[in-house]
């Protein structure tokens, strides 16, 4: 039982990072209509920036905020300089994002190197609750993710900005006629998603080491999470992240370990074929395809 609870906290903390990147993708893909393959690299850049700042003697939590802002700025630049021009040709945007991911990956290798980087546990505490040892940092990662999910969820579903955003997705022309600056909202969503990727990267490096190639591994999980839950659906991304975490956890424990990666892929393909709109329903992706 103790081991089970410990495993649960560990899986939850890993799932948290997946959920953060999943939310970023679900917003950018589902609401802004941009297929950004470089999103994983955004996360990696966030992690690397955190590693650099912590290495320079900065407090981890300050570095986390700065990494989020940095990657948010990166997202702003990418949207203004690149994706803005391909909004009516999503396929070109997709190809450009692959180019961007190649550039970011190798720029990081050029600036640092290709070896894996890690930081020491920034909190360094172990809580013992009812005989269960819980690494404090992992619990903090889960808590930060929960707060971000809550803010995003209420922002999208309750605030007037969220409502305007959803209106722009439902009917772009009408939304523009009602005075909603749709283009600005697209930029805003892109920045917000990138910011989450930066924070996700910072949290990720606090859990395990990352390399410049981490982004390309995690991006497919991010797409999986957002598609399983339903594009543009924040709650769906959380469910998707938990489903994927559960599948991974169970398969690692009970199945053949060498097939671990295959299970989540099969689950994803099945869900895409059987329920293309995702488990909780979403926007079915950008309309201009």
């Amino acid at each position: 039982m103790d081991i089970f609870v410990q495993q649960l906290v560990n899986s939850l903390s890993v799932a948290s990072v997946t959920i953060l990147i999943g939310i970023g993708i679900t917003l950018i893909f589902g609401l802004a209509g941009i297929v950004n393959f470089a999103h994983g690299e955004f996360l990696m850049v966030g992690g690397m920036a955190t590693w650099f700042m912590v290495g320079a003697g900065m407090n981890f939590f300050v570095a986390l905020v700065l990494a989020g802002l940095l990657v948010g700025a990166l997202g702003f630049a990418a949207e203004r300089c690149l994706f803005r021009f391909t909004l009516n040709r999503p396929m070109n945007g997709f190809i450009m994002s692959i180019g961007l991911s190649v550039i970011l990956q190798h720029a990081v290798i050029r600036v640092f190197n290709e070896f894996q980087k890690s930081i020491t546990d920034p909190v360094g505490l172990v809580w013992t609750i009812g005989g269960v040892d819980i690494i404090a940092m992992r619990a903090i990662v889960v808590a930060i993710t929960a707060i971000i999910v809550a803010i995003t969820y209420f922002g999208i579903s309750r605030s007037r900005y969220g409502m305007a955003l959803r209106a722009s997705v439902a009917d772009r022309d009408t939304a523009e006629l009602m005075g909603i600056p749709v283009r600005r909202y697209v930029t805003g969503v892109f920045i917000y998603g990138s910011l989450l990727a930066g924070i996700g990267g910072a949290l990720m490096i606090s859990l395990f080491p990352i390399t410049p190639f981490t982004g390309s591994v995690i991006i497919i999980r991010g797409f999986a999470v957002s598609l399983i839950g339903g594009l543009g659906n924040v709650g769906g991304a959380v469910v998707g992240g938990l489903v994927l975490g559960l599948v991974d956890g169970l398969s690692a424990g009970y199945g053949y370990p060498e097939w671990t990666d295959a299970y989540s892929l099969v689950v994803m393909i099945l869900i895409l074929v059987l329920r293309p709109q995702g488990l909780l329903g979403g926007t079915l992706g950008p309309k201009a395809s």
């Binding site: 297929v35 295959a262 074929v273």
Partner: peptide, 28 residues
């Protein structure tokens, strides 16, 4: 076959998954 049910963007993700699966099958 899934393209008949899902849109172009989803098909891209499915083909990407197939690719990853194919490598895992070959490796094992």
């Amino acid at each position: 076959l899934p393209t008949l049910r899902v849109g172009g963007q989803h098909y891209i993700i499915i083909t990407f998954c197939f690719c990853a699966l194919f490598v895992i099958v070959l490796t094992n």
